[in-house]
Design a protein around this nucleic acid. Structure first.
Length: 416
DNA sequence: TCTGGGGTCCTAGGACCC
DNA sequence: TCTGGGGTCCTAGGACCC
């Protein structure tokens, strides 16, 4: 039996914890670069502003409806997330994080599920100020569906429990397929064309048909809704498989030196991340590209197999710069750059080759580099040529609080 | 003018081998 | 004249998630 605890309108709720005057007001939070709308308060959802909508298209509309707009502040959300997860661990057994605002718990064996769920909801809201919804079901997908219902219908007071898979069946005619976990935009558009509109319609189809139309992930989804647990839905991961560092630019970039500068920055960031987690990468793919909405698109990338696994920023930077030098073409307005590291190995499994080019002092240099950044700030020291003025730096014009503000010093307004 | 970032998994198609 | 077929590996792209 699984519990899924999901924070309601998480980013908006975080902003409300530090500014209670936003309570009851329409609020949206924007993605990096103030590009898309990634969180909406209930008041905004009622105005039919879609999730993921480009901000510039809705700016006027939001203004006319007095919607408060904020850039995302991940330092704040990360801190609030930690508080919520720590609280959950005091309420529930075997808590596993699923995302910044969701966690599963395995409650097999618990007798009084209803009381446990209601108490958890109450305690989290009281201790952290973040409202949550709770769904319970015999599989994760059913818990997720229960959670959706809990969120949508106020009559449930934020908690829906499916004791068995059978108990969920009466709800299926009223669940649109698009609301199911695993049905995204593409399948959400395709299924209605095949006369599948609700969860009930989908469950009437046989396995062969599902597999053909939705592939293996679709089959797992349907099995889980029928109450059969699928290991593929088990999202707890032993080790990450990739590291990506990339960003859209604040403005379009046309010059080679700026592309090289950005690639240098992201390669360094990826190296920092790998070192922080004690990992190394063996395959990297630096890339830079025009906007996907540009009339003439150019996507430049190259997969590079490294001679040996590394987390040395200097090596990653050198390779990334080479790609920039080789693939840069004059005349395109570039919108984004980054680096993807795959084939990740951890310290334990890393065997240095006998003919390794890595010298013993290399690790110490990187360690010192990380230590200086930690002590004196991320801009205190840099590798390679990084221009003073970063033209491509992202836009965040609507931050609620200065990002450096220490969040743990912010009192929680909702504790009574 | 302005359309996120960081992940995972699956699939289709090409290259290559026997 | 008359084009094999199956397995594997790799990569790019597409689907999904939050």
């Amino acid at each position: 039996m699984y519990v899924l605890v999901d924070c309601n309108n998480f980013f908006v709720s975080c902003e409300r914890v530090i500014n209670p005057r936003l309570e009851g007001k329409p609020v949206v939070i924007l993605s990096n670069n103030d590009g898309c709308i990634v969180a909406r308060s209930n008041e905004v959802k009622k105005l039919s502003v879609p999730m993921g909508a480009p901000f510039f298209k809705w700016k006027e509309y939001l203004k006319n409806h007095n919607v408060r707009v904020f850039s995302s502040n991940y330092l704040l959300y990360g801190d609030m997330s930690r508080r919520v997860m720590e609280t959950l661990e005091t309420c529930l057994p075997e808590v596993s994080l699923y995302s910044i605002d969701e966690a599963f718990s395995n409650i097999s064996g618990v007798k009084d599920i209803e009381t446990l769920a209601r108490e958890t909801k109450h305690i989290v809201t009281q201790w952290t100020g973040i409202p949550v919804s709770i769904g319970v079901g015999p599989t994760k997908t059913l818990a997720k569906a229960a959670n959706e219902l809990a969120k949508e219908h106020t009559a449930h007071n934020g908690v829906v429990i499916f004791e068995t898979a059978k108990a969920a069946v009466p709800y299926f005619p009223n669940i649109p397929v698009q609301d199911l976990w695993g049905v995204g935009r593409a399948f959400g558009e395709k299924l209605p064309r095949l006369s599948i509109h609700t969860a009930e319609d989908l469950l009437k189809k046989d396995d062969m048909w599902i597999k053909k139309e939705l592939g293996i992930p679709g089959l797992s989804l349907v099995h889980e809704l029928r109450g059969y647990e699928q290991t593929t839905m088990d999202h707890h991961r032993d080790m990450r498989k990739s590291v990506i560092r990339s960003r859209s630019f604040g403005t379009r970039v046309t010059e080679k030196k700026d592309i090289i500068d950005a690639l240098t920055y992201f390669a360094d960031r990826a190296g920092q991340m790998l070192r922080k987690e004690g990992l190394r990468t063996k395959i990297i793919r630096p890339f830079f590209m025009t906007s996907r909405f540009a009339p003439e698109r150019y996507y430049a990338s190259k997969t590079i197999q490294l001679e040996e696994a590394t987390n040395d920023s200097r090596i990653l930077i050198q390779k990334a710069i080479n790609v920039g030098e080789q693939l840069f073409k004059q005349g395109y307005p570039y919108a984004k750059a980054g680096i993807v590291c795959t084939d990740i190995v951890d310290k334990k499994h890393f065997q240095q080759s006998l003919f390794s080019a890595e010298r013993s002092e290399d690790g110490r240099i990187m360690k010192a580099y990380d230590a200086i950044k930690k002590k004196y700030g991320p801009y205190s020291i840099n590798l390679g040529r990084t221009s003073e003025e970063k033209k491509w730096h992202m836009k965040r014009e609507l931050l609620s609080t200065p990002e450096r503000k220490n969040v743990s010093s912010i009192p929680v307004a909702c504790c009574k």
